[in-house]
Design a protein around this nucleic acid. Structure first.
Lengths: 343, 343
DNA sequence: TTGTATGCGTTATCAC
DNA sequence: GTGATAACGCATACAA
C-alpha cells in the first residue's frame, strides 16, 4: 500500500491523466468551480490529487493570470518590537485574504530598500506595505507607476501617491506633554533618533517644539542621536540634563521604543532614579513594567495599524471604478502610566 | 525626454523588439552570459532595459528553470525576540546568496504550520528553515520526499531526515546549574512552557532532572505552564516556591526568554527581591540589565545559528554527489552574569 | 458538464 | 555570436 516517493513535483497534467480527465477539469476543480463538475469526476480528481501528492504551482498560476497572491512588506528594522507586532498583524490580515507575505528587512538602509523593492517587483507582488527607510527611490516610483498599490507604514514619503497608515504623532506628543505637565514636570528633554528620512520622527520632534513654544511654564531641549552607534554621546547628554542645576522637575521624553531602551540603560548606568526624574516613552514594550518603578509609555495600536494597512491595499487591489485619492489613517496612542512619571 | 509611464510590466520580448534583437539574446544578457554577446548588442539591450524599466519576472523564471530563488522559513512565534534575531540572520544569509525569504509565522499552531508548509511548497521554495510548532506533518514529509532540503531550527522532529541547528541544550542547562551552584543556590525551581512539541524544551527539562538526580546537595522542582494563558497559575507556583520554608537558598531557572519575562513580571508583583531569590534565564533579552539588579542570562548565538541553518540548506541544494546524512549542529550558550544571581 | 487550444514570460535546445 | 522554437504548469476563451 505504500506509494512511491514522488521524485519531483507532479503537475496538473499528470493528475488529469491519472484521473482520466482533462487538464481543464482539474484546473476547475482547483479553482473553486467544483460545482460545475459531476460528483463522480470530483471524486476521481480528488483521489488522483491525493495519490500523487499534487500541489498547484503558484508560480505558474501567477504567470497566466498575473495574480501572484503575494504581498510584499518592507520593514525598516525587523528587530524593532513595534515593527514586529505590525508585521505580525499584517501577515495575519494577508493570510485571511488569501495572500502570502514576502517580508524584507532593510536595516534602515536605503540601498537595501531599493534592492528589496526591485526584488518584490520581480516576484510580481500585488501590493506593497512599506515602512520606509529612505527617500522615494526610482524603484518605488516604478512600482507605483505600474499600478502596484502601495501603503506607507508609520513613515510617509513625499512625492509618492500612497495611503499612509500610522500613529497620530502630534496627538501622541500632546498626550505625552499633557501627562508630564499634569505630573508636575516642567523641564523636558526630548530624545530622538535622527529624524532625517523618517517622517514620523520629524513630526514628533516638530510637535514637541511647538508645545515648548506654546507653554511658557515649560522649558525643554532636544537631543537627536544615533542610539546604537554612540551610546557615549547619549550618556553625556543625559548626564548633562540630569546634573544641571534646575528648580523645575525634570523629565525625559523618548521618541520611540528603541530610544526608551537606550535611555533606560544610560540612566541605569548613571544611577538616576526614575520618577524623581520623569521618563516617558512612545511605544509600549513588554518589559516596561519591570524597569525600576515601571516606565510610563504611549502604546501604539499596532494591530489596528497592520490591519488598516492591508485593508488599504485590498481596496486598491480591486479597481471597480476610479481610485480614491491617497488617504491618511492616523491612530491615537494610549497612555500607560507607571512609576517613572510619578514624583 | 519624458517616457510614458509603463502601463504594466514590460517583458523580455518588448525589450528584444525595442533593441532590435531576439529574445534569446536578451535572456542571455540577463542570465549572466554577456561575454558571449557583442559589445554593441550589450549596449543596445542595456539601453532598452533602461528605457522600458524592465524587470525580469521571477515567476516565469522559476517556471522554466525550476529555480524560484526562494527559501521558506517557518517561525513558531514571530514575537519571540530569539526567533526574530535568528530570522534576521537567516534573511541576511539568504540574500547574500541570491535567495529571498518567504517568512511564515505559525503562532505555535500545528494547523497553521501545515497550511504554511503547503503554501511554501506551492511557491516551489528551494529550501525550508523550520522552527517547528507541531509534530511532523504529511505536508512536511511530502516536502522532504520531493527532495526539498529542510533545516530544523531549535526544535528537532522525529522521523524527519533533516539537519538540525540549535543550542546545545544540555550544555546550557549544565552551565546554568553550575553557575547557580557556584553562587550558593541549593534549591532550584525550573519553569518552562509545556515541553510537548518542542524538542528543545524537552531536552532542557530532561537535563535539569538529570542534574537534580546527580547532585545530592541540591533540591529542586519543575513547573510547566502555558505562560500567557494562565499567569495566575504561574504566580501561584512562584508564590508557593518562594514562601515555603527552606533553609537552602532558592533560585528560579527559566527555560526561555518568554518564561523569563513572565516570571519577572510575577516576581515583581509578588515583591520578591532578585538576587536573594536567584533568577537565571535562557535567552538574552535587551532589557535584562534593567530589571531590578539585572537578570543573569544564557545568551544563544543567534547569528551563528541562522547562518548555519542557511549554510546547511545551501550544501544540500547543490547535490554534486551523494547527500551526506543528516547533521546536527549545536552551539554553546554564553553566560551573562548579573545581579539576579548575586546573593 | 466536459474538453481543446492558446498564451503567460522565461530559459534551454537546437540550428545558422 | 545570434536567433527561431519548444517547453515549463497553469488558466481561460471557446467549442462541443
Amino acid at each position: 500500500m505504500s506509494s512511491l516517493p514522488a521524485a519531483s513535483h507532479s503537475t496538473i497534467l499528470e493528475v488529469a491523466r491519472d484521473a482520466g480527465v482533462s487538464k481543464t477539469s482539474v484546473s476547475r476543480y482547483l479553482g473553486g468551480e467544483r460545482h460545475r463538475l459531476s460528483p463522480a469526476m470530483q471524486a476521481r480528481i480528488a483521489a488522483a490529487i491525493q495519490r500523487l501528492g499534487y500541489r498547484p504551482n503558484q508560480m505558474a498560476r501567477g504567470l497566466k493570470g498575473g495574480r501572484s497572491k503575494l504581498i510584499g512588506m518592507l520593514v525598516a528594522d525587523i528587530r524593532n518590537p513595534f515593527s514586529v507586532t505590525v508585521l505580525h498583524s499584517v501577515e495575519q490580515a494577508c493570510r485571511a485574504r488569501g495572500f502570502s507575505l514576502l517580508v524584507c528587512n532593510t536595516d534602515n538602509d536605503p540601498d537595501q530598500e531599493r534592492n528589496h523593492l526591485a526584488l518584490l517587483a520581480s516576484y510580481r507582488v500585488e501590493g506593497v506595505v512599506i515602512n520606509a527607510a529612505g527617500r522615494p527611490s526610482a524603484e518605488l516610483k516604478a512600482l507605483a507607476e505600474q499600478g502596484t498599490p502601495i501603503v506607507l507604514l508609520d513613515r510617509s514619503l513625499s512625492d509618492v501617491d500612497a495611503d499612509v497608515v500610522g500613529l497620530d504623532n502630534a496627538g501622541a506628543i500632546d498626550m505625552a506633554m499633557d501627562h508630564l505637565l499634569e505630573r508636575g514636570y516642567r523641564n523636558v528633554l526630548y530624545v530622538s533618533e535622527p529624524p532625517e528620512g523618517a517622517s514620523s520622527r520629524q513630526r514628533r520632534l516638530e510637535r514637541f517644539r511647538q508645545r515648548l513654544a506654546q507653554a511658557p511654564e515649560l522649558t525643554g531641549e532636544t537631543a537627536c542621536l544615533a542610539m546604537q552607534r554612540d551610546s557615549d554621546a547619549l550618556r553625556q547628554a543625559l548626564h548633562g540634563f540630569v546634573s544641571r542645576e534646575s528648580p523645575a522637575p525634570r523629565a525625559i521624553l523618548c521618541a520611540n521604543g528603541n530610544v526608551t531602551l537606550q535611555v533606560a540603560h544610560a540612566l541605569n548606568a548613571l544611577g538616576v532614579s526614575l520618577g524623581e526624574t520623569g521618563l516617558l516613552g512612545i511605544d509600549e514594550l513588554d518589559w516596561c513594567a519591570l524597569a525600576g518603578p515601571g516606565i510610563t509609555t504611549l502604546a501604539q495600536p499596532t494591530e489596528a495599524i497592520g490591519q488598516a494597512a492591508v485593508e488599504s491595499l485590498m481596496q486598491r487591489l480591486a479597481p471597480p471604478g476610479r481610485q480614491a485619492p491617497p488617504r491618511r489613517t492616523e491612530y491615537a496612542a494610549r497612555l500607560i502610566a507607571r512609576g517613572s512619571t510619578h514624583r
